[in-house]
Structures are given as structure tokens and as C-alpha cells.
Design a protein around this nucleic acid. Structure first.
Lengths: 194, 194
DNA sequence: AAAAAAACCGACCGATCATTCGGTTGGCTT
DNA sequence: AAGCCAACCGAATGATCGGTCGGTTTTTTT
């Protein structure tokens, strides 16, 4: 692995665990074995490094969902939505660091001054909401889903699933056993019945 | 207002807007007019100050919900739950700073080393979940709510409502128009129908 | 193999950080 | 009025921070 990629990988872990301000370039240097000069040779400054990390996070998450979408073309609406929800929960576990970064306040704070950062965040949310909405709309056509507004339902659904993921990462309560309840809630939300 | 309270008030705003590490004691000193020596006279260190702020956040949030609960003794189960959801959304607007603090990663990170911090967080979540669960259980008795597990449903419901609040504060998408959709989702989740 | 370019190094810099400390003030008790 | 103590002050401190720079090594190009 090139030094640049090693820096990016370690930065992802440090930013997700300790946050933007809690991550020292000296620590990143010590972990990767790259001199601080090398880090600043590859990245203009700390914010630029964070932006590159966020870009990788965006690309890997969107890539995962694109791949998932292509394998589920035969399912009906509600099956697709439930599949996406399950896949989201699974990804939040396997790509913990990436999800932690977009769950922290760092990128949203940076988005207030950096259009690039805002663009990354919007890409992620647009993609996720589109996928939820697509399943809902398909369900409205094949009769497996009955809601008023597909977009708003997608947002509420996303807020619910993402909220569960957060409860899980915060570890104040054990939300790990909520999988079944979440699925029941998801089905109720989309059909109005069990 | 005493200097101590002025420090606490300004610290709440700074911690919520800029986070724990993004808040400088010198800035707090400049805003409040208190010398840095005065701040450290009232609070052992920065973490102690944050803990006091979090304690105030806990007390004010719990106080608000206690007061709200006492005025709704006549409603049936689902009305109470919907009332709590609406009140939660309203509070998230009027007590924006307090909610921002418990939405940041700062307290959860501190909770890993500080039992006091963890205790505050648990108090908040326990109280909120208990209130949701109480309404659900009342609804199961009077027939207005039909779910399997009241506690798990309370968690899913809370995750959904809190997720909407987060979507709102992050401002990547305008979630301000989701009020009606959230209420519909809430009702469906609790009854299995519109 | 020579030259050019890119990757890499680590000592160094100025700024900023949380925290300390010796001293002053003002109200309360005796 | 004397004594006391908590509130308050702000200059000073040592550590740490992001970032720079002049130089060396490695890779690519010609």
C-alpha cells in the first residue's frame, strides 16, 4: 500500500474515533510511519485530508448500495425497502468507521464553510433517500406499499433506521436486539398493518 | 446573574455550537468577561465544566418532560404518545443548544472514562424512553395501541423522532415539513393502521 | 546513465491551548 | 476595626498544535 493510502486509511480511523479536532497530525504520523512533511506533501492541510477521507467514505458507501441495488431487481416494492433497511444495518456494522464519520458533527460543521464538504454530504443523503424512495414507489405500483408521500415517507423511514444505528453506536442502551422490532415498524409504516 | 451562572450559560452555547475541543477557555473568558482564573476557581477543569453543563442540560430536559407529563393525565394511550412526540419536536426547537449537546459525540466519548457523564446520559435516555413506554402501555390497556413489546417499540419510536430532529439540525435536507408525515408514521407504528 | 520529477524526511516555527499562581477585592462575622 | 474567606483577576507557563522548509532518497522519463 502506498504511503498516501496508508495515511488515508489511518486518518479515517482516527477521525471517526477521535473526531476532527481530536486527531493530531503528529499522531497520524506516528501511526502510519510517514513524516509530517510527507502528510502535508500529499494533502494541502488537515481540512483537505478530511475532505479526501469524506470523499472516500462517500464513494465506498454509494458503491456498496449501487452493488446491492443491482442484485435485487426481481423483488417487489416492500421487499426491496426491507432489503435496503437490512443492508443499511449490516453496512453500519461492517463499515463502522465510515458511518461514524458521517454521524459526527465534523462534516456538517465543515459544510457551512466548504461547498465541497456540503456536496459530499448531499450526495450521500440524496443517494440513500433515492433508494428508499424508489422501493416505496415500486411498492405503490405493485400494491405492496400504501403511503401518501413517497419522499417524506423515505425520510421518516431513513430517520428511524439511522436513529437505531446511532442508538447502537452510542451504547447508552443495548439497541442490538431491536432488529425484529425495527422490521415490524418498517412494515407497519409502509402498509399500515402488521 | 452570578459569574458562575454566566459562565455556565455561555459554556452551554459554546459547547453546543463548537463542541468540547472546539471551545477555548480564553474565548469563554472573553465572552463572559470573567478572567480565566475565575473560571478555574468555579470549575476544577474543562471536563468538570462540561459535566456541570451536561448536568444542567439533564435537569432542564427532565424538568420540562415532568411538567408536560403532569398536564396530560386525562388522555388515552395513543394521544399521550403523540403528545410526547409533538412536545419533543417543540422542545428540540426551543432548547436547541441543550439538544445539540446530547446529539454531539462529546458526552458519549467522555462517558467512556467518566461514570458521572455516563450517569447523566443514562438518566436522560431512561427518562425519555420511560415516558414513551408509559404512553404505549397505557394505550395497550385502553386499546388505542397494539404492539408486541412496549419497550422495544418505545426505542424504535424514539429513534425515529430523534432521527427527524437530527435531520433538521444538520440542514442537509429540509426536514421541517416532515411534521405531518412523522405523526402518520407514529400512528401507524402504534396501531398498524392509519 | 543522466536528468527530471515525485515521494519522503524530521527539525523547526509561531500560535494556541488548558491550567497555575500570587495577589486584590468586597462582603460577612466577631 | 480586625480577621476571614470566597470571588475575582490576568500575566506567566509548559505542552501541544498545524504547518513549513531545506534537503535526501526513490522513481520515472528521456
Amino acid at each position: 500500500m502506498s504511503k498516501r493510502n496508508a495515511i488515508l486509511a489511518s486518518a479515517t480511523r482516527l477521525f471517526s474515533r477521535n473526531g476532527f479536532q481530536g486527531t493530531a497530525m503528529a499522531e497520524l504520523s506516528a501511526i502510519t510511519g510517514a513524516a509530517t512533511g510527507t502528510i502535508f506533501h500529499h494533502f494541502r492541510n488537515k481540512e483537505d485530508l478530511f475532505l479526501q477521507v469524506l470523499n472516500d467514505v462517500k464513494e465506498s458507501i454509494l458503491d456498496q448500495f449501487d452493488r446491492h441495488q443491482q442484485t435485487r431487481r426481481d423483488q417487489n416494492g416492500i421487499e426491496r425497502v426491507e432489503g435496503v433497511v437490512a443492508f443499511y444495518l449490516q453496512l453500519a456494522g461492517t463499515m463502522e468507521d465510515q458511518f461514524l464519520i458521517i454521524h459526527r458533527h465534523d462534516p456538517y460543521q465543515m459544510a457551512e464553510t466548504s461547498p465541497v464538504c456540503r456536496s459530499h454530504l448531499e450526495s450521500i443523503y440524496t443517494c440513500l433517500l433515492d433508494i428508499f424512495e424508489e422501493g416505496i414507489q415500486k411498492g405503490m405500483q405493485d400494491g405492496s406499499v400504501a403511503v401518501d408521500s413517497p419522499r417524506q415517507t423515505a425520510m421518516v423511514l431513513f430517520a428511524m433506521v439511522d436513529g437505531i444505528v446511532r442508538l447502537n453506536t452510542y451504547r447508552v442502551y443495548d439497541a442490538g436486539t431491536l432488529y425484529d422490532s425495527l422490521m415490524v415498524a418498517c412494515r407497519r409504516l409502509l402498509t399500515g398493518s402488521r
